[in-house]
Structures are given as C-alpha cells and as structure tokens.
C-alpha cells in the first residue's frame, strides 16, 4: 500500500546542490508516495526529530559534498537513540563505490549513487517498505 508510505526526504550537511534531491522527490510523488522534503542544510538532529515527528517510515538523504560517512554515522546513532532504526533508510548522491560498505555498516538500507534510474528507487521502496 504505497499511499500509506510516508517519506522524509532531507538534504543534510552544508551542500546546496538540490537538483538531484528535488528530481527524486518529484519521481516519488509521481509514483504515489507521500513525501515531505525538508529543504537544504538540515542537521542530523533536525532530520531525526523530523523522522519521529512525521512518523516517517522511509528516510531519504541526498549528499553530494562527500561528507556522507560522518553525517550518516551521526544520523545512525541518533536513529538508534530514538528507537527509529526501523525506518527504511536510503542515501543517494555522489557516493563512491568504496564507501557503500561503510554506509551499510552504519545501517543504511540502500545506496543509490548518481546514475541510478529513478524507477530503481521507486521499485526498491515498493518492495521494501516495512
């Protein structure tokens, strides 16, 4: 039931490049998901608070600056602290292959690097939303 899926989509860190984030948000909306987009420059604390407040079952992040590992490490810890590690967590952007394993270790459920077809993201969510 995609209509019940609530996705919090966020731009963490200081990176201001939001073309990709907005494209993915539009694709998810067109696919029938309910998406809340936070806008730019959200701290890990703000993002996890929004996950709790919005009762989101999916968290999507877009990061292009290269700071995905330290940011996700912090968000992972906060999700655990707030007992929201159940949230389906996806990360996209400029994420080199060599960092994927580190992100999965932190608790990210899927990494969609630049070049991933939009449909792949939609299909993943349809199949995996808790």
């Amino acid at each position: 039931m995609t209509s019940a899926v609530r996705i919090l989509f966020a731009k963490p860190g200081l990176d201001g490049h939001d073309v990709g984030a907005k494209v993915v948000v539009r694709a998810l909306m067109d696919a029938g998901f309910e998406v809340v987009y936070t806008g730019l420059r959200k701290t890990p604390e703000e993002i996890v608070r929004r996950v709790c407040d919005e009762d989101a079952n999916v968290l999507g992040l877009s990061i292009l600056s290269g700071s995905h590992v330290p940011i996700c490490r912090r968000i992972g810890a906060l999700l655990l602290e707030n007992q929201r590690e159940d949230v389906l967590w996806i990360v996209g952007g400029n994420i080199p292959q060599r960092d994927h394993a580190a992100l999965y270790d932190i608790g990210v459920d899927a990494v969609f690097a630049v070049g991933t077809p939009l449909q792949t993201i939609v299909d993943f969510l349809r199949e995996n939303v808790p």
């Binding site: 200081l14 990176d15 701290t43 290269g66 590992v69 330290p70």
Partner: peptide
C-alpha cells in the same frame, strides 16, 4: 558543530 565532516572538503 555544523561544519561536521565538511572542513576543507570541497
């Protein structure tokens, strides 16, 4: 604190 992971990166 908001500069976490970004100093000297880009």
């Amino acid at each position: 604190p908001a500069a976490l992971g970004e100093v000297g990166r880009v």
